[in-house]
Amino acid sequence: MLCLTPLLGSDRSVDVGGLRPVLSEYEQAGRDLELGDQLSFHVAPLQPDHMRLVWREPTRAEDRVRVTAHTCDCVNTVYELCHAGGQAHIRRTRRGDGAVQVHESHRRLFKEAQAVWLALLDGRAR
C-alpha cells in the first residue's frame, strides 16, 4: 500500500491501492523520500472496457475546494481529486495551444469519488 502526500498541508492522505507514483527523479538521484515530498501519479493507459465519465462545466457550487490528490502536470491533461462540502469530485484540466479547459465530474460521497479516482489512475475510467 502506498499513500500520496497530500497537498496544501492537509493531514489527509489518499490510499492509492498499490499504484506507484513516478519516483524516477528520486531513484536516479539515489535519495530517500522525505516527509513533505510531493509525489504525482501518471495516469495509466486507457483500458478497452473503461468506464466513461461524464465531464461538465465547473459549477462553482463551493467557495473553497480542497485538492487531496493530483496527477503529474508534466502532461497536458491533469486530474485532481477535490473535496468540498462533504462531497468530492474529479477536476480535469486540459492545456494546449494557449487554451485551458476545465471540467468536473459529478459530485459523490468521498469514498465513491475515491473509487472513481483509483479507476481513473488505473486506466479503468476516463
Rank of each mutant, 00 (worst) to 15 (best):
M1G: 14
L2P: 12
C3R: 08
L4P: 00
L4D: 03
T5W: 04
L7M: 11
L7C: 05
G9S: 10
R12H: 05
R12W: 02
S13D: 12
G17M: 02
G17I: 01
G17L: 03
G18V: 02
L19V: 06
P21I: 07
P21G: 09
A29W: 02
G30R: 03
E34I: 12
L35D: 10
L35F: 08
D37R: 00
D37E: 01
V43I: 00
A44V: 09
P45D: 09
P45E: 06
L46D: 02
Q47E: 11
Q47N: 05
Q47R: 11
P48K: 05
R52Q: 15
L53I: 14
L53K: 13
V54C: 12
W55D: 04
E57D: 07
A61Q: 11
E62H: 14
E62Y: 15
E62I: 06
D63L: 15
V65E: 14
R66L: 15
V67T: 14
T68F: 08
A69T: 01
C72T: 08
D73L: 05
T77V: 13
T77Y: 00
V78A: 11
Y79E: 00
Y79I: 00
C82F: 09
H83M: 05
H83T: 08
H83R: 06
H83F: 08
A84F: 10
Q87N: 13
A88W: 03
I90M: 07
R91Q: 06
R91I: 02
R92W: 01
T93C: 11
D97R: 15
G98Q: 08
Q101H: 12
V102C: 04
H103K: 13
E104P: 04
E104H: 07
S105R: 03
H106W: 07
R107P: 03
R107W: 15
R107K: 10
R108I: 02
K111A: 05
E112S: 03
E112H: 04
A113E: 04
A113R: 01
Q114P: 00
V116F: 00
V116E: 05
V116G: 00
W117P: 09
A119M: 13
A119F: 05
L120H: 03
L121M: 04
D122T: 03
D122M: 02
G123C: 05
R124P: 03
R124N: 11
A125D: 04
R126I: 00
R126T: 01
R126Q: 01
